[in-house]
Lab assay of single mutants.
Amino acid sequence: SADYSSLTVVQLKDLLTKRNLSVGGLKNEWVQRLIKDDEES
C-alpha cells in the first residue's frame, strides 16, 4: 500500500476529498481511512 504517513496534511486532505472520505479526526485516522479505502476498492 502507499506510504500515506509520509504525505503532508494538505496532500492527505486532498486525497480524502477526492475519494469523498471524511477529513475529520487526526492525521493517523486519515491514513487508516485511505488504507481501508484501498483495500475495499
Rank of each mutant, 00 (worst) to 15 (best):
D14G: 05
E40G: 09
T17E: 14
G24L: 10
S1E: 13
D37I: 03
L16V: 03
L16M: 06
N28S: 10
D37P: 01
S5L: 11
W30N: 05
K36V: 09
L7A: 05
L26K: 13
Q11E: 14
N20S: 09
L26Q: 14
L34H: 00
Q11F: 02
E39L: 13
T17Q: 14
R19Q: 05
R33V: 07
Y4D: 04
S5F: 08
K13S: 06
R19E: 05
G24W: 00
E39H: 11
R33A: 10
G25R: 00
L15E: 11
S22C: 08
R33I: 07
R19N: 05
E40W: 10
D14A: 09
S41I: 11
N20P: 01
S6N: 13
V9D: 15
V9P: 13
T8N: 10
E40H: 10
A2P: 14
L12I: 08
L12G: 00
K27C: 10
A2C: 14
V10R: 09
S41A: 14
N20M: 08
R19G: 06
Q32T: 11
Q11Y: 01
S1P: 13
Q32M: 07
L15Y: 04
K13D: 04
K27Y: 09
G25F: 02
S22V: 07
V10W: 04
V31S: 00
D37W: 15
N28H: 14
N20Q: 11
I35D: 04
K13W: 05
E29P: 00
L26N: 15
S5I: 10
S22L: 06
L34F: 01
W30S: 04
I35A: 07
I35K: 09
A2N: 13
V31H: 03
I35H: 08
L7Q: 07
N20T: 01
T17M: 13
S1L: 14
S22Y: 01
S22A: 11
K13F: 08
N20K: 11
L34C: 07
K27P: 15
Q32N: 11
D37N: 11
L21G: 02
K36S: 10
D37S: 12
G24Y: 02
L7F: 05
D14S: 06
K27I: 11
R33M: 08
S6C: 12
S41Y: 10
S1F: 13
D3E: 09
S1D: 11
R33G: 05
R33C: 07
E39D: 09
K36C: 12
G25T: 02
T17A: 12
K36A: 13
K18E: 13
I35L: 12
V10E: 15
E40D: 13
W30T: 04
D38R: 02
V31T: 02
G25L: 00
L21E: 04
L26T: 15
L7T: 03
Q11A: 09
L26I: 10
D14V: 07
V23F: 08
